[in-house]
Design a protein around this nucleic acid. Structure first.
Lengths: 201, 201
DNA sequence: AACTATACGGAAAGGCTTTCCGGAAAAGCA
DNA sequence: TGCTTTTCCGGAAAGCCTTTCCGTATAGTT
């Protein structure tokens, strides 16, 4: 049996509450890492991040024992943000539009965050749980959008949420020297295929 | 023995031929690197490779000044092998079968060689030329197979060789924790779309 | 065989991640 | 509050890898 509580956090249950400065430092580190990864790249030296966060290296490595743990945490956080966007969109747009907008948001995430593609393909076991996490968080989000759009007749689902998620994630992973719109174009092809109407035969 | 130096009117950039031991060592290094990358991964220490090749580190770095250069060379070599497979297949199979078999070969290459995906997404400028190389080498190969299959009426092209190449390369890039056949399945979907007429069975 | 340009090997340099530990600060307790 | 305990911090140092350097060895030439 497993409790159905979201186990997103790594350190939820502790005999004593985490010290506030520790939590604050973790926050600073995640924020700094997100910034540095975005500007310099995921291969940026750790010192760059600790300097920006205003902490020592020791602090970083206490909370994220391996470099990969930091990267993973940053990515998971972005995945969470992506998931959180779904209900908001569903509440403010027609189902079909909400679906399209959310896929756009997801596409932007994958295309922009090169670190995501790097982590996914690095082969480092530390990242093994990432696809699962993505599926677990984003699968239901997409599923509900897809369901709503299907119910309203705007879309006919021909692909599972999981397959769609993976396919988009892969197609949008940035490649050097490719026209900037390639990923978007491919995804558009995929999404067009979902539109109700005649299948492409 | 003929002295083929000093061609009149043409400036020869290579004043002397490369020493045979040098060429032999380069060969050993490429072979060893291919093996080690395949077993340990592309992040394997250089020493592992030089030991297997039976040379010193200095030798490696003379021929491949940066680690990335070695990786690039190994990948280019595999791309070449893939390109070379096309004429052989075309000569021994029906056009449609040849196309399918070659795509299978290409899929295997992308799916098996994790180093390829890593390099492609690393963001290291050293790999910027790789997609171009792939296109240049494999584009014509696929193009001719596609053309032959189209001419024989077995396939109706709906996608350019370039787009197909990239799409397959991306879809097949291995992801952790995904069913081993995911990439193949996605590609099959794509290829079925190319078949003229009704879907099989 | 002698000579010279090339290439070799491995030690050392340089950089980045990760470990370690003495000191500082927060939380718990009277 | 003042004191004790526990947790956390910072940066120096260790460890591992890539990359450089240079004296030595050798293929190719005459």
């Amino acid at each position: 049996m497993s409790d159905n509580r979201a186990d997103s956090g790594v350190r939820d249950r502790a005999p004593r509450r985490m010290r506030t400065d520790a939590r604050r430092n973790i926050e600073s580190l995640l924020e700094a890492a997100k910034t540095v990864f975005g500007t310099v790249g995921v291969d940026a030296p750790a010192k760059e991040i600790t300097d920006l966060a205003g902490v020592g290296v020791g602090t970083l490595y206490r909370h994220f024992p391996q470099r990969a743990d930091l990267i993973k945490a940053v990515i998971e956080r972005e995945i969470d943000a992506c998931a959180d966007a779904a209900p908001a969109l569903a509440a403010t747009h027609e189902p079909g539009v909400a679906l399209a907008k959310w896929l756009d948001r997801f596409t932007a995430f994958v295309a922009t965050k090169r670190g995501f593609a790097v982590a996914l393909h690095s082969g480092d076991p530390a990242f093994d749980g990432l696809p699962g996490y993505l599926l677990q968080k984003l699968g239901p989000a997409l599923e509900s959008l897809l369901k709503a759009a299907t119910a309203s007749g705007e879309v006919r689902a021909r692909i599972s949420a999981q397959d769609l998620l993976y396919a988009v994630a892969k197609l949008c992973a940035p490649m050097p020297d490719e026209e900037p719109d390639y990923g978007r174009r491919m995804v558009a092809l995929l999404v067009d295929g979902l539109r109700s109407g005649e299948p492409p035969h």
